[in-house]
């Protein structure tokens, strides 16, 4: 022992008390830097939309002032009707996504071995990884009059006339939204099901609780925060992704995102900002309501 302990390894050596105290002070700020960045270039710009929305519109830009003209322009025109109807169709998409997607999340959690679960969920990342816009554009040849769906159905003899309502219509937008956002309900449902321990299923079987009661009385209340977060995501994106109505929609299919980008193209920046502010208000109030109802911080438990 003696020869090996002839000199102590590290520890116990005196440290210079004054060795770069500025470095010690700097380190916490390195960890905060991303948050500062997010405040500067995300939180502040989003909050500033409210300020810019009341600026006066000029020919090519805007100037400081206070006018509610943009809001008037939004609320007392066809824009409001369009916005509200896009809300309706967005809600329909949320429901369809939930009905189609959530059972998958339950199935994966319940019936697939723990180790394989993540890999199965990864399958849903695959379509999500192809540019959303390309996927939406690619729906055109699929849903078109002479597209994949119609020609397949006609060849099978199920229909005689091509279905034209599939594209350039509200139906088209809903199909686009469902195909774009379905993976998200699977992801959020999968995370939400973390709150439902696997033994619950055994307890329910033991008590003779049927699948529907089990879903309504046990799974839904436990998974509610995650389901809600996923639904808000789909709803808000249905309102905000301009390309969906732009590419797939017909007359009257205009959502908030499209209003904003059209306003930008028309150089009506205050209007674009008003729409953004309205969207942010919608989003925040939805999240607030969700938080009051379900305590959304619960979703984060698996992350912390």
């Amino acid at each position: 022992m003696a020869d090996l302990s002839s000199h102590a390894v590290s520890g116990g050596h005196p440290v210079d008390a004054d060795k770069a105290p500025w470095r010690a002070k700097l380190v916490p700020w390195v960890f905060r830097a991303p948050l500062i960045f997010m405040v500067m270039f995300f939180a502040i710009p989003m909050a500033m939309t409210v300020v810019f929305s009341v600026f006066e519109r000029t020919m090519f830009w805007m100037e400081p002032g206070f006018t509610l003209f943009s809001y008037e322009n939004f609320f007392f025109s066809a824009r409001l009707t369009n916005f509200l109807s896009s809300m309706k169709y967005s809600l329909i998409s949320v429901v369809i996504c939930f009905v189609l997607g959530f059972p998958i999340a339950v199935f994966v959690r319940k019936s697939i071995p723990q180790v394989a679960q993540h890999r199965v969920v990864l399958l849903f990342i695959l379509p999500f990884m192809v540019s959303e816009i390309i996927r939406v554009f690619a729906l055109r040849p699929v849903l078109q009059r002479n597209g994949l769906v119609n020609s397949t159905l006609m060849e099978l003899g199920l229909i005689d006339e091509p279905i034209t309502a599939l594209l350039y219509s509200h139906t088209g937008v809903v199909i686009g939204e469902v195909l774009s956002f379905l993976p998200f309900i699977v992801f959020s449902g999968f995370l939400a099901m973390e709150a439902v321990p696997k033994y619950i299923f055994e307890v329910c079987d033991d008590l003779g609780v049927g699948p529907w009661r089990r879903f309504k009385d046990v799974i839904l209340p436990l998974a509610a925060p995650g389901i809600f977060a996923g639904s808000v995501f789909i709803f808000v994106n249905g309102l905000g992704v301009a390309l969906l109505p732009n590419i797939l929609g017909g007359a009257g299919a205009v959502n908030a995102g499209l209003i904003a980008t059209q306003a930008i193209t028309a150089l009506d920046f205050p209007l674009a900002m008003a729409v953004s502010a309205i969207m942010m208000a919608t989003l925040l109030s939805l999240l607030w309501i969700g938080h009051k109802l379900f305590d959304l911080t619960k979703i984060l438990t698996p992350l912390s």
């Binding site: 022992m1 302990s5 002839s6 000199h7 102590a8 390894v9 520890g11 116990g12 005196p14």
Partner: peptide
């Protein structure tokens, strides 16, 4: 046997 005590310590 010295057990790694350094000069600084008593």
């Amino acid at each position: 046997m010295t057990y790694g005590t350094t000069d600084m310590t008593d």
